[in-house]
Simulated assay, not measured.
Amino acid sequence: MHDELSGFLAYLRMEKRASELTTKSYEHDLVKFLHYIEQRWNISAAAVSYVHIREYLTELYAEELARTSVSRKLSSLRSFYTFLLREERIKENPLVLIHAPKQGKKLPSFFYEEELSLLFESVNTSTSLGKRNLALLELLYATGIRVGECVKLDVKDFDLYLETLLVKGKGGKERYVPVGSFAAEALTIYMNEARPLLKPADEALFVNYQGKRLTARGIQKMLNKLSTDASINSRMSPHVLRHTFATHMLNEGADLRTVQELLGHSDLAATQIYTHVTKDRLREVYRRSHPRA
């Protein structure tokens, strides 16, 4: 059992080039499943059938897990058994007839321009960390990059002359994204006036007060404080800023393919959710503005 799991995790790292976070997520789901079948039926992964999977799903639902959580665990199992089938450790995939639970449509949260203005105005740029915070906030909104991509940025990845950023995305894929004039100006001030005073230990673009590379947790903590200072009650996170970037781009007429490329989505379907947001926004404006709405 452990050999099967070890082989699958090695496959994720070596062949699929999955991130450590993704690999750990798969491992967590699969360890729980393997422990369950061992305790419940005393069988190995290779002996699992459709019936065992169905009963395991029943157990998950009994725990009152969200449908998204069940879908994720099911996705981990599907990938695991696809691997075992490829390696000829099983003859049939027990998940062939298993369907993922239907997901409710949950539209991504985003900020209106008025809320963002309050957020930008709340930044105190009289300190080195304040200049960093403004540059970070401007960059996240200007580019829509993921927080994991942001923390990996080095100084050399920002081209001031071309106002572009080299982003290292999922699966080792790289893309260039434009940086708006506001973000470029804030970045320039931070890099010239604030970053040297923070005594960076390496070439990381964004560093903390100790000069070490800023972490995703550090960014979230900073955004929480800014939202509190700006008296914004909505949930604040780097991903909400990413949603805001995409929504505002589409609201202003950007085409879906362009937004897909800027976000680094491999599948257009992942970008299409933002069209629902913009349609809702249009309906809201229409109902509020039209005399006979």
Rank of each mutant, 00 (worst) to 15 (best):
Q220I: 00
R195A: 12
R175C: 12
L77V: 01
E113H: 10
K32Q: 14
L139T: 08
Y50M: 10
L118E: 07
V155Y: 05
L223P: 02
Y36Q: 07
F158R: 03
E92C: 03
A201E: 14
E138V: 06
D267S: 12
I90A: 06
T127D: 06
L262H: 08
L250T: 03
V48S: 13
H248F: 11
I90N: 14
L60V: 02
K279Y: 11
E27Q: 13
Y161M: 14
M222A: 05
I98R: 09
Y50P: 01
H265K: 09
G253M: 04
N192Q: 15
K91T: 12
A194Q: 12
D229V: 06
T125E: 11
I145S: 00
T127N: 08
L262V: 10
L197G: 04
M236P: 01
K24N: 15
E55T: 11
D255C: 05
A269Q: 04
R175V: 06
G172W: 07
T258P: 06
A142D: 09
K24S: 14
E193Y: 04
L137C: 03
D229K: 13
L107I: 08
A254Y: 12
H248T: 01
Y26G: 14
L107Q: 10
I90T: 13
F206H: 05
R54H: 04
H99P: 00
G211H: 13
P238A: 07
E27L: 07
L166I: 07
A269W: 03
Y190N: 12
G211Q: 13
M1G: 06
K24T: 09
H239N: 03
P196R: 08
V70S: 10
L263S: 04
T215E: 00
L197T: 14
R235C: 00
L166D: 02
R195W: 13
R288M: 06
G104V: 09
K170E: 08
D255Y: 13
K173R: 12
L107D: 13
E4F: 10
T23W: 03
I37F: 06
T247W: 03
E174Y: 11
E138Q: 09
V167M: 09
T125V: 15
T215R: 02
S49G: 04
H265F: 03
V96T: 15
L223Q: 09
L250G: 04
S79M: 12
A142W: 04
Y274F: 07
K106T: 07
Q39W: 04
H99F: 06
V155S: 14
S128Y: 13
T58P: 03
L107T: 08
R213Q: 02
G169A: 02
D157V: 01
R292I: 05
E193Q: 15
L12V: 12
H276A: 06
S231G: 10
N133W: 01
G264L: 05
I219P: 02
L5I: 15
E185P: 02
K152T: 05
H243Y: 07
G7N: 09
E252Y: 09
E38G: 12
L165M: 06
N192V: 09
H243F: 05
R146Q: 05
E55A: 09
Q103H: 14
L134Y: 00
S75D: 07
I273Q: 11
L60N: 04
S266A: 15
Y209E: 15
Y161E: 15
M222N: 02
I98D: 00
L116C: 08
L268V: 15
V277C: 10
K24I: 09
L85S: 10
